[in-house]
Amino acid sequence: MIIGAPPAPEDRDRGGPGTPLLDVRGLTKHFGGKGGLFGKAKSGVVRAVDGIDFSVAKGETLGIVGESGCGKSTTARLVMQIIRPDAGDILFDGEAVGSQALSLGDFRRQAQMVFQDSYASLNPRLTVEETVAFGPRVQGAKPAAALAKAHDLLHRVGLEPRRFAGRYPHEISGGQRQRVNIARALSLDPRLLILDEAVSALDKSVEAQVLNLLLDLKRDFGLTYMFITHDLNVVRFMSDRIMVMYLGKVAEFGPSEPIFEKPGHPYTAALLSSMPSMDPDHRTQEAPLTGDPPNPIDPPSGCRFHPRCKMVSTLCSQAEPRLSTMGEDHLAACHLADPQSGHPRLAAA
C-alpha cells in the first residue's frame, strides 16, 4: 500500500454496506431574490437546484451530466456543505451532517472535492508540495510523513516531485494544476470524493493514467465517487449509475449502460447525439438540440424541457412528468416513460 495507511474501510463504515454513503432528499437551492448577495431583488430567483433526490451506494461511482448551468456544481457544493441548502436533507452513512452523531468536522474529514476551477482553488502562495501536504499537516501528521505522502501522491498523478514539488500554481500548466488538486483531495483519505470536471484539462494519455488511479483506489479502499463531467465517453466508462440533470431537476437516473443504450428522456437522447463526429469527412452540420436555452429564473411550465422537445404535446406544457420506471433502477422524468400519462404518442405506439 503506497498511500499512507488509511483506516480500513470497516473502521469508518458505521451504517453497514446496505446504507448508502450519501442519501439526498428534496435538495433545493435558489439564488438571488430576497436577501440576494447584492440586494438585487429585481433580478429574480435562480432555481439552481430544485428539489432533487438521489443516493450513492458505498463503493459506487455516480456520474452527473447535464446542460451547462443545470445545477451540477451547486449540487456538489451543497453536498460538501460549502453553501447551505434552502431545503432538503443530506445523510452521510445514515447520519445527518452537522448532527450530534456526525459533526461538520467529522464529515469534512471524510468527504473531499476537486473543484471545477483549478486555478482559483489553489493558494497562490503555497508550493505544490505544501498544497498537498497541508491537509494532513492540519490533521496532525508529522511534517516528514505529510511530505512523503504528498510526494507519493504527486508521483501517482504523473507529476514527478523532483521537478514539480517546489513550483507555485502559476508556474505549472492547466492540466498539471488539475492533478495537484486531485492529489490534494486524495491526501486526506476521503471516503467520498466529488470530482467536478477534474480531468477536463488532461491529455488523453494522462487522463487514462489518472482514471486508472481512481479505479485502483476505488477497488483497494472502497472509495465512493461523484463524477461530474461533460465528457460522455469518460462518464460512461467511470460510472456505475448516472444522473442526468436538466434545469435544476433530475431528468433521468439509472445504470450507465441502459442510459447510453436506450435513453429514456429526450434531453438525454439529444445530449448523446451531440457528441462530436470522429469523421473528418462528415462533420456535424446542424446542432441536434436548438431552441432557446432554458431560463432558470422563469422555468417553462410542465416539463421544463418541453419548448425544445421533438416529442412535445400539449400535456407536456401543462403537467410536470413524474420519474417513471423504464427498467430496473432506471427512471426518466418524461410523460413518454409513463404509460398512464396520456401522452398522445403513447396511444399511437
Binding site: 446542460e67 451547462s68 471545477q116 470536471e197 477536463s200 451531440s274 462530436p276 456535424t284
Partner: peptide
C-alpha cells in the same frame, strides 16, 4: 471543456 455536448457543438 466546460460546455456540455449540446452547447459545445453550437459554439463550434
Amino acid at each position: 471543456t466546460a460546455l456540455d455536448a449540446t452547447v459545445q457543438i453550437q459554439v463550434l
